[in-house]
Simulated scan of single mutants.
Amino acid sequence: MQKDQLFTRRRMLLAGGAALGAAGTAGAVLAAGGADTARTAAAPAAGPRARRALAPNAFRLQPLTGDGPPRAAPRKLKVRQEPILRISGRGRRMVLTFDDGPHPDYTPDILDTLAEYDVRAMFFVCGECVVDNKELLARMADEGHVVGNHTWTHPLLTSLDRDEIRDEMESTSDVIEDAYGERPQWFRAPYGAWNRAAFQLGADMGMEPMAWTVDTTDWMEPGTSAIVDRVEEGAAPGVVVLSHDAGGDRSQTVRAIREWLPYLLDSGYHLTVPRRRV
C-alpha cells in the first residue's frame, strides 16, 4: 500500500470527518461463556516478551493533540471469570489474531496478505510498539481490522500489583485511541496469564478478555512448514488462531500465512472479526 493510503484515516481524523468504525458488523459475536468457552490452563502460555519496536521510520505519524472532543467513558462490562477462547455462530467461522506488534518489518507484509485475500483479523498490540508505528494502526483501521490491548511492555500480569496492571492497560488504550481512532474493546493478557485484577480492570475499561484456541507456536520459530501444519490441522468452526507479528524474527510467520490463509479459504472457512459494540 502506498504511503498516501496509509495516511487516509489520519487525514480524516484531523479534518474532523465522520468517525470511522474499527471493524465491520459482519463478524461473529464471541461466545459469552458456557459451552463455547473452555478454562485456561493453570500455567501461562509460553512465549517471548515483546521487544521494543525498531527506530521510527521516516513516515511516522504524530499523536493527535488535545483539540478533539473529550474521551467518552468506556462501557462497563460484566466481569468474566475466564477469557473467551472460541467464537459462536453458525458456519465455518474462524478468527485470526496477531500479538505483540506492530512491527515495521513484519506487520506490513501480514497486512498485505490479508488485503490480497480480503480478510480481516485482530491485532493485539503493545503500547511501546505503537508509539513509533502509529501509521500501521491507521492502516488497520482503514482496512477493517480490529485492534486490541496487549499491555504496554508485555509483562507477566500475575507478577504486578493492581495499579501497575491498570497503568499497563490504560496507557495502551490511550495510544491505541490516538493512532487507531477509538479505544480498544478487546484485551489479551501477555503469555495468557490472567488474574482477577486483569478481568476486573478490563471490564471497567470496556474490554472483553480474549485468549485463543490454536497456538501456531510461531514464537518458537519452529519453521514455516510447522506453523502451516499447526493452523491447517487445528482449523475448525469457532477456532481463534494465535500468531505474532513482533517479539522476535517473524519472517516464518509472514511466509506461513501466505500458505495457510488460501488453504483455509479454499476449505470453506469464513475468517471474521468480532462484531463491534455500539
Results as ranks from 00 to 15, higher is better:
37 T>W: 10
74 P>H: 05
95 V>K: 01
52 R>C: 02
62 Q>M: 14
82 E>D: 11
28 A>L: 06
57 N>R: 14
92 R>E: 09
48 P>H: 13
51 R>Q: 14
86 R>M: 09
47 G>K: 00
114 L>D: 01
43 A>N: 10
89 G>C: 09
63 P>F: 02
117 Y>D: 02
63 P>E: 05
86 R>H: 15
86 R>P: 00
90 R>N: 11
69 P>H: 06
86 R>S: 14
93 R>I: 05
97 T>K: 03
71 R>H: 07
46 A>H: 07
78 K>R: 14
37 T>P: 00
45 A>Q: 12
118 D>A: 15
41 A>F: 10
49 R>V: 10
97 T>M: 05
28 A>N: 07
54 L>D: 10
78 K>I: 07
84 I>D: 00
59 F>E: 15
47 G>S: 03
68 G>R: 11
86 R>N: 13
106 Y>Q: 01
26 A>S: 12
38 A>V: 15
43 A>G: 05
71 R>C: 05
26 A>D: 15
116 E>Y: 10
61 L>M: 07
36 D>F: 12
31 A>S: 15
54 L>S: 13
57 N>L: 12
27 G>F: 01
61 L>N: 01
32 A>T: 12
55 A>M: 09
26 A>F: 08
109 D>A: 15
35 A>E: 12
113 T>N: 04
65 T>R: 09
78 K>D: 11
49 R>G: 09
104 P>Y: 03
29 V>S: 14
106 Y>L: 02
110 I>Q: 00
39 R>P: 06
98 F>A: 03
75 R>K: 11
94 M>I: 14
120 R>N: 13
38 A>Q: 12
52 R>L: 06
92 R>C: 01
41 A>D: 12
90 R>E: 14
53 A>D: 09
107 T>K: 04
23 A>S: 11
47 G>N: 01
105 D>Q: 13
104 P>H: 08
116 E>C: 08
42 A>Q: 08
58 A>L: 12
48 P>E: 10
73 A>C: 03
64 L>P: 00
89 G>W: 04
53 A>N: 04
74 P>I: 03
107 T>Q: 03
51 R>N: 12
111 L>F: 04
109 D>G: 05
105 D>N: 13
45 A>I: 03
85 L>C: 12
110 I>S: 00
112 D>L: 09
33 G>R: 08
56 P>L: 08
72 A>W: 01
62 Q>G: 05
100 D>V: 07
35 A>V: 08
97 T>D: 02
57 N>G: 13
85 L>S: 14
98 F>T: 01
81 Q>D: 15
104 P>C: 05
99 D>T: 02
91 G>A: 05
59 F>N: 14
50 A>S: 11
41 A>E: 09
76 K>D: 06
117 Y>H: 15
25 T>V: 08
80 R>N: 04
116 E>G: 07
118 D>P: 02
55 A>I: 06
25 T>K: 13
100 D>T: 04
121 A>E: 04
80 R>E: 11
65 T>G: 15
30 L>G: 00
